[in-house]
Design a protein around this nucleic acid. Structure first.
Lengths: 115, 115
DNA sequence: GCGGCACATCGATGGCTGTCAATGTTCTGG
DNA sequence: CCAGAACATTGACAGCCATCGATGTGCCGC
């Protein structure tokens, strides 16, 4: 997918109009999350402390190369960290990375129906 | 794009593993945001109170059919409301819709590096 | 009603990407 | 060394989607 790290790039999008460049970066970031297999991988890994790649293939229900591909995309985006131990690869969720996207979606007071 | 309305579908994804069905719904929601033109449209409309479609074609820099297509996708997803007045179409951001996605990305305490 | 404007829809097309089989690479045990 | 396991990479393919030109559909002014 040719992914770049997710970074702070702009103010909350509901209050300030996005520039073309910021919109490109943001769209690329959301594209990483726009796949069921990647969402499940990220969710699975984050709900544990860390996870070995060998334990992720079966629950996701895709081939080993496909899982490896998605893990690479998530890692390139900065959402996961990879640590090799012997012949195994352990993945861990990077805290704070999703917060960037949360903040772009606006403050709670602005996105809540109540106000 | 064959879009369905964005709805609450699951607990925060960093604490509980997503089911296959929830992951599909969530991925579809993020896919709506995974396009620069749609992000800019949503941002433009939300930063004003409302916007006429005729004023959106030029700043986005795409053809009129393309802009109309993206507005339809955003409306189908529940992110925009359309109101026709005479031959014009006015769009307005739906408050609270993005909050659903915000919540899925986790609570601030969980996604912040500090804790 | 007739031309024209605003907007939506249709059809076609090019590029992107998720998927898998096959293969490469690195590590382990013997 | 060698066989095998775990994981990454490559190549190929199918499906999806953003984009545009052309056309359709209401609405307005004259």
């Amino acid at each position: 997918m040719d992914v770049k790290p997710i970074e702070v790039c702009c103010a909350p999008m509901l209050t300030t109009a996005l520039s073309e460049a910021d919109a490109e970066d943001l769209a690329a970031a959301f594209k990483v999350l726009a796949d069921p297999a990647r969402l499940r991988l990220l969710s699975l890994i984050a709900s544990q402390d860390e996870a070995c790649a060998c334990d992720l293939v079966e629950p996701i229900g895709r081939s080993q190369p496909t899982v490896s591909h998605h893990l690479a995309v998530l890692t390139d985006a900065g959402l996961l960290e990879r640590e090799k131990r012997g012949k195994w690869a352990y993945y861990r969720a990077v805290p704070g990375c999703l917060a960037v996207l949360r903040d772009v979606l606006g403050s709670p007071s602005l996105t809540t129906t109540g106000a």
